[in-house]
Design a protein around this nucleic acid. Structure first.
Length: 435
RNA sequence: GCGGGCGUAGCUCAGUCGGUUAGAGCGCCAGGUUGUGGCCCUGGAGGUCGUGGGUUCGAUCCCCAUCGUUCGCCCCA
């Protein structure tokens, strides 16, 4: 093999795109129900945009960004996550002045230079939403409810929702101190990874997968005990809204987020069939974010959901909603050069009449063309040969029943449409995609 | 970035205790029907056995490196 796609990237081939379209449509439908409008931002931004907001210490900024200089020497980076670019666009286009609450959604690729693993890629695709401009916990509930709705529609009803509050700049510093005070004496006994986290992100230690760490930190202070009044109230009201909405959740006191910008609400939907990369949709509130990008103090909240992960979770659950891509209505088969030439113009006419049509190129036997017609999934085959040409007609063959008839050429579009309509009213026994 | 598994046809995989022409099923193409698809039969194309180096009379097989992939860790969607 001469060339392969770069490590951690993958091609989405024609036999898979129908499934991607299906998933995108599931998402778009929910965006309409909840009133989120699509935004499309550049695939790269000034590196500052991400460095500023994700936190200089986060792994994403430290070692996972695709950063490069353009010809003028400015530093640009491929988007590693969705929120930063959206907020940048929000400010640049003055939505803060024109939309009291901006409800935005996107479907876009993200890029991270990390070691590929199951359901983790260097280029992956996320659907996501952001709501910028309100601190109301009802909005947190809407965002989480959106996530639940989307996953349910996709068929992943078994995903478990965890929520937590990670506090705010008022209460987190005190908690961080208390946590570090607790961890200090344990430090030598913690895993290597956690020793490193002690400085960079001590809250992550609570989330460690190391069993020894888990035991040692069983009685560690948790953020919930240190929440300021405002954060406490916010978290309580969120839970009430979720209960009112019949959304099942569990409070995970150790749930944290990797990016520095999160405040208050953090949440994750996990799927059991995925192995180590089991988070299928995750997000949280980021009330200090807009300010960090130079805007006025503006609260915001959103989530991202990895499409590759959702598709793998679907596969693990045996959800296979789409059988195949679009099929032509009509397949034109010809015999002889004159008929082939004529077939080309018939094909063009059918298409102008709105009938999806194909034909065979190169000189293939009729048998081979019929085989192609069969595999194309077309309902009708149109046969053109010397007989038809001399009579000014075409043979129209209904592929399911093998019935066929001569049709005058000027009758053709009308007759073909009639036959196709009849088929649609009484759908044949083809394996219908399950909804 | 760290540790382990795997890499044989388009796909799923067999195989060689190191030995000459590397196999199957599916798929693809053609013929069996010089104007008719699905089933069946017959035939065909398609492989530098991931790549590079080493050991050997001889390597797809053993060793090393490298690339890719996969599982776990870090981190994350």
């Amino acid at each position: 093999m001469q060339y392969a796609a770069p490590r951690g990237t993958h091609d989405i081939m024609p036999d898979e795109t129908p499934l991607w379209h299906w998933l995108e449509e599931k998402f778009r439908r929910v965006t309409r129900l909840y009133g989120y409008q699509e935004i499309r931002t550049p695939v790269f931004e000034h590196t500052e945009v991400f460095a500023r907001t994700s936190g200089e210490s986060s792994d994403i900024v430290r070692k996972e960004m695709y950063t490069f200089e353009d010809r003028s020497g400015q530093s640009l980076s491929l988007r590693p996550e969705g929120t930063a670019g959206v907020v940048r666009a929000y400010l640049q286009n003055g939505l803060n002045a024109t939309m009291p609450l901006a409800k935005l959604c996107y479907i876009a690729p993200n890029f991270r230079y990390e070691r590929p693993a199951a359901a983790r890629y260097r280029q992956h695709h996320q659907v996501g939403i952001e709501a910028i401009g309100s601190q109301d916990p009802a909005l947190d509930a809407e965002i989480i409810g959106f996530g639940r709705h989307y996953l349910d529609d996709v068929g992943l009803t078994g995903t478990a929702l965890s929520i937590n509050s990670v506090g705010c700049p008022n209460c987190r510093p005190a908690y961080r101190e208390a946590l570090q005070a607790f961890l200090q004496p344990l430090l030598p006994r913690l895993s290597e990874d956690s020793q490193r986290r002690f400085e960079t992100n001590p809250m992550r230690i609570l989330d460690s997968k190391d069993e020894g760490d888990r035991d040692l930190t069983a009685d560690a202070p948790v953020m919930l005990e240190y929440l300021c009044e405002e954060c406490q109230d916010h978290f309580a009201r969120l839970q009430n809204h979720l209960l009112d909405l019949d959304i099942e959740f569990e409070v995970d006191r150790r749930l944290v987020r990797g990016l520095d910008y999160y405040t208050k609400t953090a949440f994750e939907f996990k799927h059991a069939g995925l192995g180590a990369q089991d988070t299928v949709l995750a997000g949280g509130r980021y009330d200090g974010f807009v300010e960090q990008l130079g805007g006025p103090p503006t609260p915001g909240i959103g989530f991202g959901s990895g499409m590759e992960r959702v598709l793998e979770a679907m596969a693990a659950d045996g959800i296979r909603p789409v059988a195949s891509g679009p099929r032509p209505d009509v397949f034109v088969a010809t015999m002889g050069e004159a008929a082939h030439k004529f077939g080309v113009s018939v094909l063009g006419q059918l298409r102008r009449d709105g009938i999806a049509s194909e034909m065979s190129y190169g000189s293939r036997s009729l048998k081979s063309q019929m085989k192609q017609a069969d595999r194309s999934g077309a309902q009708l085959a149109l046969l053109l040969g010397d007989d038809e040409l001399s009579k000014g007609a075409a043979t129209v063959r209904w592929l399911q029943t093998s019935e066929q008839q001569f049709v005058e050429l000027d009758e053709l579009p009308r007759r073909v449409k009639e036959l196709l309509d009849a088929t649609r009213e009484a759908p044949p026994v083809s394996p219908a995609p399950q909804e």
